[in-house]
Design a protein around this nucleic acid. Structure first.
Lengths: 224, 224
DNA sequence: GGATTTAATTACGTATACGCAATTCAATGT
DNA sequence: ACATTGAATTGCGTATACGTAATTAAATCC
């Protein structure tokens, strides 16, 4: 699981900073920006900014529109549906693979801890903490799946829906039932039952997808 | 399904040309190249070449190694397995979605034609034609799935394994059984049986994955 | 007054310039 | 011989320059 040591070039910094600006909403979805504006804002020249935007465009976070600048991507309901479908499939694959990997309890410690963190967060109705632990669960699940492509695609897709998740965090019902699912997935992985791990995670995700989309519709958030 | 009209900038041309050089094997897997070398080769300056390589790196076709130039990606057996797993999941999703879309016979014409093309190619033992039709089948299936993210991820993954498929085209057994699968998937989509479409395509893909990996092992092609 | 042509501006796409990190290689010391 | 050091070279990362497509504004015509 060794990754290449990351080069800390200015281009890389630009990518991370721009990504963060998008996640924080400082570059609002749908807004347009000049390369020179971003360069000024980040205190560097256009070159690394330009390179960063081209890479981020490949990841779907923004579009570079020739001669028109950079537009931060928006998400329609259809986009959300697409992304959640992909997440469902690939995370379910990860769950299946994790279950067939013969992990020890020790290997699964982080996964278990994230479930426990979700439970205590739910008891306290601490939505931020719950969201954080939920992220940790999904990240760890995918990591245990051991497929680096799945990891990077899932991370890309999760990045794209980050804003939407943040927006809905406080308007959605507390996911009281979801911990059952998490536990069931965890147990299936521990038992090595790959079909069960897969199916259980898949239905969990499909349900989450429906809840989210209904919620967005109900609040008329057709475009984020 | 309208895509944004493609800008024909030099950077775009660089991307396409470099991609083609990789597919054609003129930039061999594992080989290193200077930005200036590629720039000379393509008759342009370093800037668009550099931008192109950064984007292609996001797609996994090559790596940009700071201060060391561009390295064309190689594929290990593990990589092949990873990619085929992703393809299996996402294509199966596409089959499922296609089946629940209520497509008419007319809508499914291209899919049917690709199956027929595979059958006639098999009778003639024309492997090139078969491979071409097989590509068409998978492309069309994914298109019918109607998920643009799935389309682009699948296309990325298919690009990554292109070399390996070309290498094995003449050493693998003729896929005589696979047309049954294709027909079954087609029928399931036509009938609107999404579970069947999904399951059938999934097992088809899983089988193909195993065959390919065994083949690579048998020929000691551990690294392509 | 509204439409159309033309001039001016803007912002990008590409080329070029330049300095530094990384590598190479030779010279020196042991 | 081998290791070590340091100079020379290489190749990239970033900045800057510049021409041109796209947009806006102005001017002209009907």
């Amino acid at each position: 699981m060794l990754e290449a040591p990351k080069p800390k070039t200015i281009t890389t910094q630009a990518m991370e900073k721009i990504r963060q600006l998008i996640f924080d909403g400082e570059l609002a979805a749908g807004s347009d920006h000049l390369e020179s504006e971003l360069a000024d804002r980040l205190g560097m020249s256009r070159t690394p900014v330009r390179e960063a935007t081209l890479m981020l465009a490949q990841q779907g976070l923004l579009e570079v529109r020739p001669r028109k600048g950079v537009r931060i991507s928006t998400l329609s309901l259809k986009d959300m549906g697409e992304i959640y479908s992909v997440l469902t499939e690939l995370e379910s694959l990860a769950a299946e693979e994790a279950a067939s990997s013969g992990y020890s309890d020790e290997d699964l410690k982080a996964l278990k801890q994230s479930i426990e963190a979700m439970e205590t967060a739910l008891e306290r109705e601490d939505r931020e903490a719950w969201a954080h632990a939920d992220d940790a669960f999904h990240d760890e699940l995918v990591r245990l799946g051991g497929n680096s492509r799945v990891e990077s695609i899932v991370s890309m897709m999760a990045n794209q829906v980050r804003r939407a998740r943040a927006m809905t965090l406080y308007i959605r019902p507390l996911p009281l039932k979801s911990n059952e699912d998490h536990r069931a997935v965890y147990d299936a992985i521990k038992e090595g039952d790959s079909d069960k791990a897969r199916d259980r995670h898949r239905s969990h995700r499909q349900h989450a997808r429906e809840v989210l989309i209904d919620l967005l519709k109900k609040h008329k958030l057709f475009h984020i």
